[in-house]
Amino acid sequence: MEKLFSGAGQQKVAVIGGGGFIGRSLVRKLVATGHVVRVGSQNPEKIQGLGKARGTGRVEFLKTSVNDAAQLDRLFDGVDAVVNLVSVMTPDVQTLHRINVEGARLAAVRAHLAGVKHYVHMSAIGASLTSPGAYGRSKAAAERVVRDVFPDARLLRPSVVFGTDDSFFNLFALIAALSPVLPVFAGRTYYQPVFVEDVAEAALRLLQPENAGLTVEAGGPDILSMRELMAFVLEASGRKRILLPIPQVVARLEATVLEKLPGHLLTRDQVAMMSVDNVVQPGAETLQTLGIHPASLGMVVPGYLNGSICKLYRQLKA
């Protein structure tokens, strides 16, 4: 892809949360297209490997919290564009609001004051003020506060994101590797998984001036129920297991325990959100709007799920 802002020289792009799953892909794409990428992370020392990304651009690292105005000001000083990828899914509603909503507002405000011209905010399919889950409501509130500050901000709403280090397919493949049964939560809820490289490419293309104000829902070509996705996990990982449907009342009881454990493997909020399909809505702008033809599950997932238990665990924790 050509450089951003056709006709201009090397540009600076700040990526908040650039060390995360989607962020790492986006940073590599920005470096490859010749830009200076300023990565804001709470633990920059852990992501120094991104400095080796190939391309004519380069990477700078700054310790940054979306709730710290001074750190955001340093991150945004002299940059042309910002992509905010920071988001948490936690049973702690106060933390959810502080990071997903207040953090989104503060980042947008400080970017606007710094004179940033192009702003992309990562949201999620299912973002709605009437969502059954607090996470979905927090993402909708974040969209609203960002657009209050940047009316032409670009919003990107992906479905479940997959890729080598994802926390969805790797988790269920690891469960299948360790257990004779694979639980199926909300088996009739539909999802539209999207490849991490396609999401990163969408964020990159949204920075183009002609995409100002655009809201894009990012889904892949496959629309599958949760039960179909679990069957796919077994096929892709080469394992035969019993698919065990979990009633919602049981899922909520399990979540009550699991959300208290490190990592929050399952929360009551997630169970609530599983009651709603997570697919691109009719009439929405899509990846195709940006000229992206998304990769299918079958093209990517079998290549990283068919491995040892240790490999799956490393990928899940990456």
Rank of each mutant, 00 (worst) to 15 (best):
G55I: 04
V149E: 14
R314C: 07
P158G: 07
G40D: 07
G7M: 08
L72R: 08
A295Y: 11
T267N: 02
Q10H: 11
L96D: 04
K63S: 13
M273C: 00
R154L: 07
A236S: 11
A53L: 06
V216K: 02
G291H: 10
D165E: 13
P245W: 03
L244G: 08
Q94F: 13
D80N: 15
V15S: 00
V145Y: 10
T215K: 09
G303T: 01
P180M: 08
F21V: 05
L253P: 03
G187H: 07
G19E: 00
G303P: 01
E60V: 11
H264M: 04
R137Q: 07
P282G: 11
D165H: 10
L316E: 04
V160I: 12
L206H: 03
G263M: 01
I246M: 10
L290A: 04
Q71R: 12
P132D: 02
L171W: 14
A186V: 00
R147D: 12
R38A: 06
A114S: 13
Y191T: 15
R58C: 12
G307E: 12
R241P: 03
V301R: 00
T90I: 08
S131M: 05
L50M: 03
A14L: 11
H293I: 08
I99S: 05
V233Y: 04
Q281S: 15
I16L: 15
E201T: 03
S6A: 15
L113A: 15
G213R: 13
A142E: 06
F76L: 10
N67Q: 14
I125E: 05
Q270W: 00
P158M: 06
V279S: 09
S159G: 13
L171Y: 12
M226N: 12
I22P: 04
K317H: 14
I223N: 07
S225E: 06
G213W: 10
G238E: 05
I16D: 02
S65D: 08
I125W: 00
I22E: 00
S131W: 02
V59R: 04
A134M: 10
E228Y: 09
L234Y: 11
R58F: 13
